[in-house]
Design a binder for these strands. Structure first.
Lengths: 236, 236
DNA sequence: ATGCCTACTATTGTATACAATCTAAGCAGC
DNA sequence: GCTGCTTAGATTGTATACAATAGTAGGCAT
């Protein structure tokens, strides 16, 4: 577990709290760190060659984002969203994202549509690729599409809310997703961009809503998950 | 400045990082701490009789909420939202709150309507009261109404987003509000509850949108604010 | 007198040390 | 042999100590 492989920069010379936070977040979102994994302050600190002080700062920030749970006197763990939390995360996405894409559709420029098309191409490239690394990159790219749309609104606060929702969605999918592959149909992403290009605001909005429904439909949120509660308790 | 009066519990025996965060947040939201005020780690620490460690944790959390800006090697300051930020905050509220009240209107129960009515009564009581303390309480109560509606959805994530938006709105109103009094028309709140009680979902949604527009209309967001930039520079 | 340079002070950034709490293993007793 | 207690280890919580940066004041030269 302590051998969790982070992206480069772990052995770099200069490391701040921000870098640790980002590295951990990326590892969680790309599912290199499984939900429930304990993040010992000492272990993380020695990986980055920093003291616990900076690690604690990073973990607290991640806790605020909902990616990490800190239990008093017990330590920090990669978040393990309950069914209720999962439902709330997607309920919030259903609430926010249609409005977001509506706003984006109004402000969108030709250059931004081109950027979205590039993201789609990248997604497709990864889908046709084999290997765990490609899978991780695909997961991230799939989320990045939603974030790119939020970025078009030019609203930093909204963007941050979406950052959090997308990151936590990744955890939910990791836990409750059934068809591991294609967490986000890239064809649906394509349709959305098409609607944006045609300036079809209502269409884009409707497609986004349907898209979120599809993602959620791939989840198995029955409370009677295979020994779910028990496993949580005795999980490392 | 160091004599900023916090609510009781400053001299209490047991204090954690959470308490400091809450006390500071309340002080900021109720405008006992002006935007731009420096929050020195030593000063805050001695006020609460804790070391800088806990103060830093609290300040970092507040920074994540957008209530405090931490500048590297310079310290933490009560946030001083720019015009652009103010616009984004209210744009986000316009985006989210109508959907929130729609969701709330569907789940609302009789008991919750009664709770809202109590909040309205409390608001009115404070409005008719004189003195700075009442004014502060009124500001808080006005925000609490919006938060109570978010709470009805039962969605903790949504609630947290709203927490942040309402808190930051208070800062914006403090900076750019024109008519100091009645930052939120309590009569409009009343109308919203009436609509909720009649199960008039669309009506409640429309009223909320209009209400937010009214709040924003009371703001003076012209970039050419009276020496704004200069005052920022020489502000304590 | 003004402008620049240098040294000092104060504050933040980071690491380490100590205290408190939890976890787990070993031992005694039933 | 199993249950419950006691003790030892490990991990987190908090405070303090040290390092680095920035702001400030004073002096010197022009």
């Amino acid at each position: 577990m302590t051998s969790a492989n982070f992206t480069a920069a772990e052995n770099a010379i200069d490391i701040g709290a921000q870098q640790i936070r980002d590295a951990l977040r990326e590892a969680i979102v790309e599912r290199r760190l499984a939900p429930g994994t304990k993040l010992s302050e000492n272990d993380v600190g020695s990986l980055f060659n920093v003291s616990r002080t900076l690690v604690r700062a990073a973990l607290q920030a991640l806790a605020y984002e909902g990616l990490v749970n800190v239990e008093k006197n017990r330590g920090a763990f990669v978040a393990h969203p309950s069914v209720a939390e999962a439902q709330q995360i997607f309920a919030t996405r259903r609430l926010i994202e249609p409005s977001v894409i509506r706003d984006a559709a109004r402000h969108i420029q030709k250059a931004e549509i081109k950027d979205l098309r590039e993201l789609l191409a990248q997604e497709e490239r990864l889908t046709n690729q084999r290997g765990a690394t490609a899978r991780r990159a695909e997961i991230k790219a799939s989320g990045d599409f939603h974030l790119a749309i939020a970025a078009i609104t030019g609203n930093a606060i909204l963007k941050r809310f979406m950052d959090e929702l997308i990151a936590r969605s990744s955890l939910v999918i990791a836990l409750y997703g059934q068809s591991v592959i294609s967490s986000c149909g890239h064809n649906e992403h394509q349709e959305i961009v098409d609607a944006l290009e045609k300036n079809d605001v209502d269409g884009a909005c409707a497609l986004m809503l349907k898209h979120i429904d599809h993602i959620e439909a791939d989840l198995d949120l029955r409370t009677t998950k295979k020994g779910g509660d028990l496993r949580d308790a005795l999980q490392l």
